[in-house]
Amino acid sequence: MVPLSWYILLGVVLFVVGAAGVLLRRNILVVLMSLELLLNSVNINFIAFGHYHGDLRGRIFAIFVIAITAAEVAVALGILVALVRNKSTLKVDDVTMMKG
């Protein structure tokens, strides 16, 4: 069988890649996609721990994470569409309307 640490390492690599996308990219769409990547790496960890410890709660929490992710993406893309309609930009640095 595949050792548990391999799954954890895959989660670590995907998390670092997703965090790099969130922190380094300036395009809002790519930042949102990298957030999805972060949540998926956490899901891998949940299911791997649940599988190797014989616990169903890992899968339950993964289901909740997927549901909350769907809600988050819907709201974020709605905000993005409203933002592009008001201020035609996709760069994170240009969105400083809330700054005093």
């Binding site: 909350i68 809600a71 709605g78």
Partner: peptide
């Protein structure tokens, strides 16, 4: 939360 996200997305967009 999903219902709130549904309503919120419609209102925002």
């Amino acid at each position: 939360i999903l219902l709130a996200a549904l309503v919120g997305a419609i209102v925002l967009a």
